[in-house]
Structure formats: structure tokens, C-alpha cells
């Protein structure tokens, strides 16, 4: 039993005796000043907990997206080169297969294959990037792959569709009539104008992947934002849950801002919107 006096003192310390709007304003004020509060559980500042967890999740996201794009872009281009050709049909089949497998199953499957059967990569755990790069990558590769495969299928399909449309454009005929080699036409002429949808989809996808990472972090026991959130929910450590939700939301907004900026980089027409009539 907690004495009534101690309870009141604790409530006061946590600001729970203020009105709800008052608490909210206080929270906003603190957050904007970088103070996300302290963990109810162990007294550690929330900021510190998030700071430790965030790099893990960010690395996971970055790696997974790198893998997805590095594989999806060439495959998408090749599939678009001969629509409904053998390569296109096989890659489409594989892509839909990957899309149909849920991440938790894919993760377990990868663990079984690479960790249990062949002992190539560790099944769980994490080494921070700053400590040992090789070890870090070893731990990161399976979870990144799990996260990547779903994105990969989507990216490939989206790029393929746009690429097919671009290859029908007049300026591609112009490039052909100039006698430029096919690889040059695909990479220098067709790829960039075909990436608008890909960039949009990737932006939204990365946003949702932040939560997708929760599952993967749980499966592989990675000390990222996902695992932090999940364990905090179980422990009813509301301060941390609040903070991770904030981080995810900010992350989503920042990524979509970057996507908008990327449009301008890809398409000069959006930069000079005023110049066109």
C-alpha cells in the first residue's frame, strides 16, 4: 500500500494533478525543449532510451530500403524492357509470392535457413554500429532482408509499370533514332522520369515500415524503437510509449517532406512550375 501522502506527492511530481489541457500544454512545452520525461519504470530519461533505440531502427530501415531498391530497380527495368516476356512473368510471379508472405513468417523462415541450418548469421541480438561494423552488419542483415522483401516486390512492380509507359514516350523514340544504345536509353533517358510513382510509394512505404519494423525487431530481438515500444506497453511505461509514438509520427512527416523535395530533384518541371505556360 502506498500512503495517501506519497500518492499525492507522486501525482504532483508527475503533473497528474493538473487539468488535462494543462498537462498537454506542459507536455508540449517539455517536448519542444527536448525533455520527453522520465521512464516510470527505471527513472531513466525517456530521451536517453529513445536515443539508444532509434539508431537500431533507422539502420534497419535504411538497410532494408537499400536492399529493396538495389534489387528492385534493375529487376523493374529488365521486366519493362519486354513486357509479358519470360523475365517479366517470372519476376511478377516471384514478386506476388513475396508480397503474399507475411513478414513474421518470412523472418522465421530466414532465421531457420541462415541461422539454424547454416549458421551464417546470428538469429537474434544486436551489436551497435559504433562498436563493430562487421558484427553489426551480421546482426542487421536478416532483419533487413525480412523487411526488404515486401518492399522489393512493390517497388519492382511500380517501377516496371512506369517504365513501360515511359518507354512508349516520343522522346524514347527520339533517343533510339539518335542511335543510342539500349542500356543508355534505359538508364539515362527512361529511368528518371519513371521514378515518380516509385518515390511516392517508397515514401509512404517507409512510413508504414516504421511500424513494420516493430514485428521484425520483436522476432530478432533488436533493441530498436519497436522493441522499446512493445516492452513499454507491457510495462505500462506511458512516458516511453508517448515518446516513441512521437518519434514515429515525426519520422513519417520528415520522410514525406524528403519525398516532396526529391520530386524537385527528379523532375525539373516542378522546379520551374512558374516558367511553363
Amino acid at each position: 500500500m502506498i500512503p495517501a501522502k506519497g500518492l499525492a506527492q507522486c501525482r504532483h511530481q508527475l503533473g497528474l494533478d493538473q487539468s488535462l489541457p494543462g498537462q498537454y500544454v506542459q507536455y508540449l512545452d517539455n517536448s519542444l525543449h527536448g525533455n520527453l520525461g522520465t521512464s516510470y519504470l527505471n527513472g531513466q530519461t525517456v530521451g536517453k532510451a529513445v536515443k539508444q533505440a532509434l539508431p537500431v531502427t533507422v539502420e534497419l530501415l535504411v538497410l532494408s530500403q537499400l536492399i529493396a531498391l538495389v534489387v528492385a530497380v534493375p529487376l523493374g527495368i529488365l521486366a519493362a524492357l519486354r513486357p509479358d516476356g519470360v523475365f517479366d512473368q517470372v519476376s511478377t510471379g516471384v514478386a506476388f509470392g513475396l508480397l503474399a508472405i507475411p513478414a513474421f513468417m518470412l523472418g522465421v523462415l530466414l532465421v531457420y535457413l541462415f541461422a539454424v541450418s547454416f549458421h551464417v548469421f546470428p538469429a537474434t541480438g544486436w551489436t551497435p554500429l559504433t562498436q563493430d561494423l562487421g558484427d553489426n552488419l551480421k546482426h542487421a542483415i536478416l532483419p533487413s532482408l525480412t523487411l526488404a522483401l515486401g518492399s522489393l516486390a512493390v517497388y519492382m512492380r511500380v517501377l516496371r509499370t512506369d517504365m513501360i509507359a515511359t518507354l512508349r514516350e516520343d522522346f524514347i523514340t527520339t533517343a533510339r533514332a539518335k542511335g543510342m544504345p539500349t542500356s543508355h536509353i534505359l538508364l539515362r533517358h527512361a529511368l528518371r522520369p519513371s521514378t515518380f510513382a516509385l518515390v511516392t510509394v517508397a515514401g509512404i512505404n517507409i512510413g508504414t515500415l516504421i511500424t513494420g519494423a516493430f514485428l521484425v525487431e520483436f522476432i530478432f530481438q533488436l533493441p530498436g524503437i519497436g522493441l522499446l515500444t512493445l516492452s513499454s506497453i507491457y510495462a505500462r511505461d506511458y512516458g516511453i510509449v508517448q515518446a516513441t509514438v512521437l518519434v514515429v509520427a515525426v519520422g513519417f512527416v520528415v520522410i514525406n517532406l524528403l519525398v516532396d523535395l526529391l520530386y524537385a530533384a527528379i523532375d525539373p518541371r516542378t522546379r520551374h512550375a512558374r516558367a511553363t505556360v
Binding site: E169, D170, F171, P193, P268
Partner: peptide, 8 residues
Amino acid sequence: MTSLNPVM
């Protein structure tokens, strides 16, 4: 309008 590459 369409025979030049818009992003080059």
C-alpha cells in the same frame, strides 16, 4: 513538346 526528354 513530347519528343525531347523532359528531365534532361
